[in-house]
């Protein structure tokens, strides 16, 4: 067999192949049909910033999808993370509030994992209830409106670090890239990453090889919730004003980003690069649509169409590569 063909096959079999393809086509398209200066500094800054936020949540979702579970509560956790960061700040100070939020998020992840793994409930039901519960909790905590961040708190070095910018690029992007690098190394170079894929790919085999499936899954859920809440903190550090609807339907965007990035609900597939590209695709399309003057409602329709196209494309690609008929069940 010639090596060129082997190499080509290796690329095409990457789980994030679809995302790489779409991102390339999309950005070539944007560059040629540049209606309103998509590549100007202001738009680019926003696109990168919001891609970083969505990317963090999508990254957490990717971990959960790799172990063959799903977390529908990330949108509410993102919202409650950001809003409690503001609410806790007067009593706990900036650092204290951030710590409290992240610890709370870890607890949320633990509760999810406990109910799913110990309680033997389906992840869809548990995290759907989580979505409700934390959204309701936001309403109960805030009443009607969300208070603004105090000005002194904004000036705090921690918020400057999270919300400022360096070399013309928002710090949120740098932080996201750092987190992504850590998770990339964790997934590709460490035993833990190997175990994550093993648990999602074939749980009984993983168990027979001595992987503690429940422990690995618990880590995935905890990481997912913590990353979502951290994304909430980053959002607030950049823009101190928000609404009770913060993060509404964000879980859908995060899942869409993860799936576009090559994750499969069947588990065992997904990469960090895929999550990054998935988030970038979704956010940049939103800005391009807004730039073209499309009503904001078009965006969610587009995300849906994109999601369906990607899964159908991946499905057909799989059939084409492996010559398998689509499964009946």
């Amino acid at each position: 067999m010639d090596t060129a063909k082997l190499h080509w096959e290796k690329v095409i079999k990457r789980p994030d192949f679809g995302a790489i393809l779409i991102a390339t086509v999309l950005f070539l398209g944007f560059a040629t049909l540049d209606y309103d200066g998509f590549f100007n500094a202001f738009t680019m800054r926003n696109v990168l910033h919001f891609s970083a936020i969505l990317g963090l949540v999508a990254l957490g979702q990717t971990l959960v999808l790799i172990v063959k579970e799903v977390d529908l509560s990330v949108g509410s956790v993102y919202g409650i993370g950001g809003i409690s960061y503001i609410l806790f700040e007067p009593q706990l100070g900036v650092i204290g509030a951030a710590t409290a939020v992240l610890m709370g998020a870890a607890l949320i992840g633990l509760i999810n994992a406990a109910l799913i793994l110990r309680g033997k409930l389906s992840a869809v039901i548990v995290t759907l209830c989580g979505l409700f519960f934390y959204r309701g909790a936001i309403y109960l905590m805030t009443g009607a409106g969300v208070p603004r961040f105090a000005t002194e708190a904004r000036q705090h070095w921690f918020n400057q670090l999270l919300g400022g910018q360096a070399m013309g690029i928002p710090n949120s992007v740098w932080i996201f890239l750092l987190v992504a690098l850590i998770f990339h190394l964790l997934l590709t170079r460490s035993a833990f990453g190997n175990q994550l894929y093993a648990v999602g790919g074939d749980a009984p085999s993983a168990l027979s090889r001595g992987v503690r499936n429940d422990l690995i899954k618990t880590w995935a859920f905890v990481a997912c919730s913590v990353l979502a809440a951290f994304a909430g903190i980053l959002t607030i550090a950049d823009r101190p004003q928000t609404y009770v609807s913060m993060g509404y339907q964000f879980e859908l965007e995060a899942i869409a980003a993860a799936i576009v990035g090559g994750c499969s609900l069947r588990g065992g597939r997904g990469t960090v690069l895929g999550a990054i590209l998935g988030a970038l695709i979704i956010v940049s399309v939103r800005y391009q649509l807004v730039g073209m003057g499309a009503p904001s409602s078009w965006f969610i329709t587009f995300v849906g169409v994109l999601l369906i196209s990607v899964v159908v494309f991946n499905r057909l690609l799989g059939v084409w590569i492996y010559g398998k008929q689509p499964a009946a069940e």
């Binding site: 869809v124 899942i255 609900l265 009503p295 078009w298 965006f299 169409v305 899964v311 499905r315 689509p326």
Partner: peptide
């Protein structure tokens, strides 16, 4: 049923698509 794609993903997408169309129909 015929392409074997998980229903969570498909119906998540249609949730998005038809919610967007619903907004479009009434133009906010």
């Amino acid at each position: 049923a015929y392409l074997g794609i998980p229903s969570l993903i498909i119906t998540l997408s249609s949730l998005f698509i038809f919610r967007g169309i619903a907004y479009m129909l009434v133009q906010d």
